[in-house]
């Protein structure tokens, strides 16, 4: 469904991705784990066209996306839950959802989408007229996910769903991701919190300093000693933010 081939990206002189390749099949939940600065967000933005790769190809259902302008990629069926949620702070909850449905021109379809999101997150319905900037972090994350669902995407890109959330909300966020996946949504998840990400994913990739260093099923990665040492903290209990231990 999605195929990233040998992607190279640089910001000016700083090279961030050095030939990243990965695939996502229909119905899969694929996790890309890696530390801060590994290039995870850059990879997501390349798929969305928000940064321009120097080399490589991104194929969507067999067609190259390289000449598709970024705003047309949402209409092509790619939904996006940005890192840090990035809800429009001055717009109300409902206006944020309407923005998520921007490519949808039929008002009835938009309203149906809003109703579905409210059914999924009743909390958002209670706050529909509130400005998004005044919501709690967890509510903003629900809004960011709901907004991405408004366009009925065929692939959902989720960047750091757990970032900046309280531990109880982290669990809730991953439960939402898991249940979306169980309902058939194809998801590419990028995450520092390797433990949680691999617990919900089918397959995973490990991104280190702009290169994929390891790939496999979630179970393979979970039992890989290198992954355990670097990302799973040797299985110690308690709250864990997923950062590699030096």
């Amino acid at each position: 469904m999605l195929e990233v081939r040998d992607l190279h990206v640089a910001y000016g002189e700083v090279r961030v991705l050095h030939g990243v390749s990965l695939t996502v099949q229909r119905g899969e939940l694929v996790a890309v784990i890696g530390a801060n600065g590994a290039g995870k967000t850059t990879m997501m933005k390349s798929i969305l066209g928000l940064v321009t790769p120097d080399a490589g190809d991104i194929r969507w259902n067999g067609q190259s996306l390289m000449r598709v302008p970024p705003w047309a990629r949402a209409a092509a069926g790619i939904g996006y839950v940005p890192e840090g949620r990035r809800v429009f702070p001055g717009l109300t909850v409902e206006q944020n959802l309407r923005m998520g449905a921007y490519p949808v021109r039929n008002p009835r379809e938009v309203q149906a989408g809003i109703d579905e999101v409210y059914a999924l997150f009743p909390r958002l319905a209670e706050r529909r007229r509130q400005r998004a900037g005044t919501l709690s972090g967890g509510e903003q994350q629900m809004l960011a996910i709901g907004r991405a669902l408004m366009n009925r995407p065929r692939l959902l890109l989720i960047d750091e769903v757990s970032m900046g959330l309280m531990p109880i909300m982290v669990q809730r966020a991953f439960d939402i991701v898991k249940s979306l996946h169980e309902q058939g949504m194809t998801i590419l998840l990028v995450e520092q919190n390797a433990r949680q990400a691999l617990a919900v994913a089918d397959r995973g990739y490990v991104l280190e300093l702009g290169r994929i260093v390891l790939a496999g099923t979630a179970a393979q990665l979970q039992s890989d000693p290198r992954v355990q040492a670097a990302y799973l903290g040797g299985g110690s209990g308690g709250f864990h933010d997923g950062r590699p231990r030096a």
């Binding site: 970024p70 705003w71 990035r86 001055g90 923005m99 921007y102």
Partner: peptide, 24 residues
């Protein structure tokens, strides 16, 4: 209007607005 909403969204966060499908 939808256009006015898009204008407001772009003024608050242009990059995210693009990702939502707004032809900035």
């Amino acid at each position: 209007t939808r256009l006015g909403l898009a204008w407001t969204a772009v003024s608050q966060d242009a990059e995210t607005a693009v990702a939502m499908g707004v032809n900035v």
